[in-house]
Design a protein around this nucleic acid. Sequence first.
DNA 1: CTATTCCTTTGACATAAATCAAAAAGCAAA
DNA 2: TTTGCTTTTTGATTTATGTCAAAGGAATAG
Lengths: 185, 185
Amino acid sequence: MNLSDFLLSQVPFSPEELEEILSCFEKKEIPKNTMLIQQGEISRTLYFIENGMGRSYYLKKQGKEITQWFFGSGKFMASADSFFQKTPSLYYLELLEDSIVYTISREKMDMLFSKYHKMDQLGRLVSIEMLTKVVNKLNAIQFQTAKERYEYMLEEFPDIYHRIPLGHIASYLGMTQETLSRIRR
Amino acid sequence: MNLSDFLLSQVPFSPEELEEILSCFEKKEIPKNTMLIQQGEISRTLYFIENGMGRSYYLKKQGKEITQWFFGSGKFMASADSFFQKTPSLYYLELLEDSIVYTISREKMDMLFSKYHKMDQLGRLVSIEMLTKVVNKLNAIQFQTAKERYEYMLEEFPDIYHRIPLGHIASYLGMTQETLSRIRR
DNA sequence: CTATTCCTTTGACATAAATCAAAAAGCAAA
DNA sequence: TTTGCTTTTTGATTTATGTCAAAGGAATAG
């Protein structure tokens, strides 16, 4: 899904508004395995994924990677708290596939927020939607068995499971790779 | 914390704006154990807690209550997805203490959102903050031991643990009451 | 003050999932 | 193809936490 369609699906921007907003984004092709932000950095860029797939993750002691979220086509990708609150990112962001993304800087985003009421509205809608999804995951993780969690994931990210290493999915679901492998069978 | 102070701490409303916004809220004293919304209802009211404490929870099979979140003084309390997206609430909301709250209807809230750019901004800020907190909890639940989760909770809700039945806290943390009791010792 | 109810702790046992270890399967480069 | 590297599966064992059951404390209403 491209950015323009996505924006219009959320808020009825006028053609002029849409044009200015789009002009603040930059379209880029970025190869897989690119790290978009490191843990500890302050995020200055928000990404919209037109095509591709990314994830956020962090390192536990012993350097184990814990996947925190997946970002697919048609979604914004960012270390949200870092980008919006200017705090050091708790996560790494990386692309798992060659991707086509739109990027925007914090400054331009702020400018759009202050210029267009509708952008704040968009921000609010996107935030609430994300909040709902995170809460859903939380419920799945908190009170379901490993098997039910796997099923939750198939609903939330139906297109993921053949595209992405098992270990990433397992850690996203809060279980070991071995457990996930056994469940799948 | 009262509503006026809270609003000003987030966004620099003018005195006139502030007055109109406040006039859309209604101040109420509500006794403990009041149910604010039932699972399945569509939430029409947003609450701001000036004083008191509430929680959201849902029922698992066998009627077990699972606490989903606690809402303390100075916070908005709502079944957020239901209120903002007009979907049936996944949760019950109840007050755990006699509380002083400000209420506002969905209609007035929408009116404020469309009238004041700054209200959308407020909505965005509050949503992002909530998002960050939920993500924190998610990380705690997902990858920490029962003991570490308990410590996370002491940080997030320092004033809670002597005010609220152990069972509520345990289910919030995704563990049984017995486990929490053993950890505490 | 006493009784009823609710809340918390403790104990014994069961179990889902983690860990450790190694084999098998896939995949990429030469 | 062969070689090497990564990912997935399988097996044996351990462990944290859940479940079930009951007793002890604390709070509330009459």
